[in-house]
C-alpha cells in the first residue's frame, strides 16, 4: 500500500494574529509553527496505522520552502517513511493542488490524504482540487477509514449527520476529527527522523488563480454587559429588545 499524506505548517493555535507590509503579509514575528493539526492528528496517524497493519509506505508531501523542514521532520518523527518537499512558496490552493497532483500522477498512490483544512487560511480547498486534477473520487471530512483490498469504507461528516460511503482505490480524502488519536513522537522516532529521506524537488509551472490583496481584523467588541445572576429575565429582555436575536 502506498499512501501520500499532504502536510502543511500552520501557526500555533495560540499565536497572535497580526499583519505587516501594509496589511498584506502575515506577521511571522515570534510565531511558532506546528504541523497543521488535521494533517498530523488525523491524516498522518491513520495512514501510519493502516500501513502498520497491512504493510506499505507513508510518504509526506509539502509545498513550501526550507522553513517548512522542522514540521516535515516532526511528521517523520511520528513515523512517516519518507518526505518530499516541493520547493516553492505556496501561492493559492490551486497552485498547491497542482504541485501535489503532478507528483502523485507520476508516482501513483492508493490514497492521497489531506487534512480537513489548514487552520490559517481555512480554505478546505486543496484536497478536492487534487482529486479533480487526478480525476479521482474525493471523500471529504472523513472521520473513519477502513480498507479491505482495494475497497475502502469511510464515514464522513455531512450537514446534519454522517454518511457511510464506499469507494475503490485510488482516491483522495480529507481527514477530520475521529479518524485517529494524536501521537506524540518518542525519542527513537525523533532520532530516526534525522536520517530519513527528505527529497526536495522543483515545482512545475502553474498559474495563480487567486491572490490575497490585503488582510483586515474584525471590529473590536464593545465591552461585555453584565447582568445579575438573579435577574435572568433582564437578560432575556436584552436579547429580545437590544440584541434582537430571540
Amino acid at each position: 500500500m502506498k499512501l501520500l499524506v499532504c502536510i502543511s505548517k500552520a501557526p500555533d493555535t495560540t499565536a497572535k494574529i497580526a499583519f505587516t507590509d501594509g496589511n498584506t503579509k502575515f506577521d511571522e514575528n515570534g510565531v511558532q509553527f506546528i504541523v497543521n493539526p488535521y494533517d498530523e492528528w488525523y491524516a498522518l496517524v491513520r495512514a501510519l496505522e493502516l500501513t502498520e497493519a497491512n504493510g506499505g509506505t507513508v510518504t509526506t508531501i509539502t509545498v513550501g520552502t526550507n522553513s517548512d523542514d522542522p514540521t516535515i521532520r516532526k511528521a517523520l518523527a511520528i513515523g512517516a517513511t519518507d518526505a518530499v518537499r516541493i520547493d516553492a512558496v505556496p501561492k493559492d490552493a490551486y497552485y498547491v493542488a497542482n504541485q501535489i497532483a503532478s507528483y502523485a500522477k507520476i508516482h501513483g498512490y492508493d490514497i492521497v490524504m489531506t487534512g480537513k483544512e489548514t487552520i490559517n487560511y481555512n480554505g478546505a480547498q486543496v484536497g478536492a482540487m487534487i482529486a479533480e486534477i487526478l480525476d479521482q473520487p474525493f471523500v471529504s471530512l472523513a472521520t473513519k477509514l477502513d480498507l479491505q483490498e482495494n475497497t475502502a469504507t469511510l464515514e464522513r461528516d455531512v450537514s446534519g449527520g454522517v454518511e457511510i460511503v464506499e469507494v475503490s482505490t485510488p482516491f483522495v480524502l480529507s481527514a477530520a476529527k475521529g479518524m485517529s488519536e494524536q501521537r506524540i513522537p518518542n525519542m527513537r522516532g525523533i532520532m530516526a527522523a534525522r536520517t530519513k529521506p527528505l527529497q526536495v524537488i522543483e515545482p512545475v509551472a502553474s498559474e495563480e488563480l487567486t491572490s490575497v490583496v490585503s488582510y483586515s481584523m474584525p471590529d473590536s467588541k464593545a465591552a461585555c454587559k453584565y447582568v445579575d445572576a438573579e435577574n435572568a429575565e433582564e437578560l432575556i429582555h436584552l436579547l429580545h429588545t437590544e440584541a434582537k436575536v430571540i
Binding site: 490551486y94 481555512n122 480554505g123 478546505a124 486543496v126 478536492a128 482540487m129 479533480e132 450537514s159 487567486t210
Partner: peptide
Amino acid sequence: AQDPTGKAIGPRVAARLGAGHVSS
C-alpha cells in the same frame, strides 16, 4: 454554501473550470 457538501464540490468545480475559488 461553505458547508460539508460545498467543501467537497466547490474547489473541484473550480479546478475543472480553471476558475479561481474563494472559500468562506
